[in-house]
Design a protein around this nucleic acid. Sequence first.
DNA 1: GCGACAG
DNA 2: ATCTTGTCGC
Length: 286
Amino acid sequence: MEKPPEAEEPSQSQDSSRDHQTWITAQDILREKLIAEDSFAWKLPATVESSQAGSEEEEALRYVGGVDISFSKDDPSKACGTLVVLDFLTLQVLYQDFSLLTLQVPYVPGFLAFREAPVLLQLLEKMKRSDNPFYPQLLMVDGNGILHPRGNLLPTSEPLTFSGFGLACHIGVEANLPTIGIGKNLHHVDGLTHCRVRKLLGDEENSSKDFINLVGCSGHVWGAAMRSTQGSIKPIFISIGHRISLQTAIMIVQMTCKYRVPEPIRQADIRSRDYIRKLEMNAKVK
DNA sequence: GCGACAG
DNA sequence: ATCTTGTCGC
């Protein structure tokens, strides 16, 4: 009889808390597979020590991927997942692919992967199945790696590493690829605030293109803040995703930054937007 | 209690 | 994520 609108809410919040719990469990299981150190067959082309070393057998890093998702302005549930692969040295785009879809999963802070990872993994899988020669040796992801609020100690790491499990980790583990997380905004974790980062960056009167470690209140290093361009006020936030060390990740990001955001991410972003925008243009003309 | 919360 | 113009500067 008397059934105020609020009466509907309990069942809804129970559903969402059930999903929430499922997500937490899934993250915890995947996190156990996370590798927080360099674990790949390639080498960096211009590494100082490796130039003379007799490791001619190892192949060099050549194919760097980037993934992103853009959304329709008309219908926020319509999205376009995008995968690009760039030549590491020339930063030219060698491959691109798009996938349109309607998202059913909402964006919940801390659980971005459950909304965005499926399409992106599908794009990677498609490329791998077709034995494309440009299949990435490393993937950069638009979103965080271990710089993520659901932190835990990694079960298998020598120097104890405290780690969350963001989108970049999620994709890395599921695709078994080395991944780097690139955040354009700071996700506040372990006492890391915008203010604190600004202060840390200000203290270092270093030259441009430099970075600071993101050390939380607990003393753990979650990633790095980097001013990728000279005079860039707004830093980007780098954290490891999977099978890479922070040191290596920073080096690679620096080498791929023509602008604030590293090229693989930037190209995925631009082309993804382009793709969905042109599609909407055609739809209006009918 | 209030604020913060990747994309 | 997306809505949005001009503007300052190399």
